[in-house]
């Protein structure tokens, strides 16, 4: 009687054989990743892969944090349709302002402008009120996959590889008329297109404790059992 492990090993071998024969491997997806701040390791354990679309809801700071390490390492960043982006905050997070271009009001040309940016820049931040149809969005996503750039979209994006939603945020440092904002803990719901699991991650996004490893909270989504069953389905 064969053990379950041996059968699993045989099945994997067979799959690998098919992949070799057909020429498609899962490594195609393992595109090179852009550098990411260590603070976000729990949020995106696989790193900020080139060609991905990441949607961020509810926190501009989180978007900036995602783009910061790549910009510091020499990537170009464009912010399209974000007229109220806090530039000082971006600089403090580590974005290199010399390689940051703002297109605050693309208007009716949003799709063309975003397309040109996806072609030329490594990280493209898209604002929430851009005039983009669903077809435009799909086109942008495939263009990003082709050119190896990363789209960070504010607001929901159908078909995003990773969807990040800020679900809770706590500030400390303020009193009743005294103190000042010092630190902030942000809880992010992470939904990945592959894997289908939603996790909650709490990270100290602001303040002195930024270097400390994030606390992972035990609020697993119901699809956990599925994940154990299906492996890396």
């Amino acid at each position: 009687m064969e053990t379950a492990e041996a059968r699993l090993a045989r099945a994997r071998e067979a799959l690998a054989g098919v992949q070799r024969r057909v020429g498609t491997t899962r490594e195609r997806w393992e595109a090179p990743a852009l550098p990411l701040a260590p603070m976000l390791d729990q949020v995106m354990p696989q790193g900020l892969r080139r060609g991905q679309v990441v949607s961020v809801v509810g926190s501009t700071s989180l978007m900036l944090a995602l783009a910061a390490a790549a910009s510091e390492e020499g990537s170009w960043t464009a912010a399209v349709g974000m007229p109220s982006l806090g530039v000082v905050a971006a600089a403090r997070r580590g974005l290199d302002l010399a390689r940051l271009a703002l297109m605050p009001h693309p208007g009716a040309q949003a799709a063309t402008v975003a397309g040109a940016c996806v072609d030329g820049m490594d990280v493209v931040l898209l604002g929430p009120r851009l005039a983009l149809s669903d077809a435009d969005r799909r086109r942008l996503a495939s263009r990003a996959r082709e050119r190896g750039s990363v789209i960070l979209a504010e607001g929901p994006w159908t078909g995003a590889h990773v969807a990040l939603t800020a679900v809770a945020s706590r500030w400390h440092g303020l009193g009743a008329g005294d103190g000042r904002l010092r630190g902030r803990e942000l809880t992010v719901r992470v939904e990945e297109r592959r894997g289908g699991l939603a996790r909650l991650v709490t990270l100290p996004i602001e303040g002195a404790s930024v270097g400390v490893a994030p606390v992972r909270r035990g609020a697993e989504a119901p699809s956990m059992s599925l994940r154990a069953l299906g492996g890396a389905a």
């Binding site: 170009w76 009001h105 030329g120 820049m121």
Partner: peptide, 21 residues
Amino acid sequence: RAHRALERVQGLLGLEGVLAV
């Protein structure tokens, strides 16, 4: 590549369309 992209966008949107900060 980035410079070319920015020039293209500036051609589309005009002078104030692309800002350096």
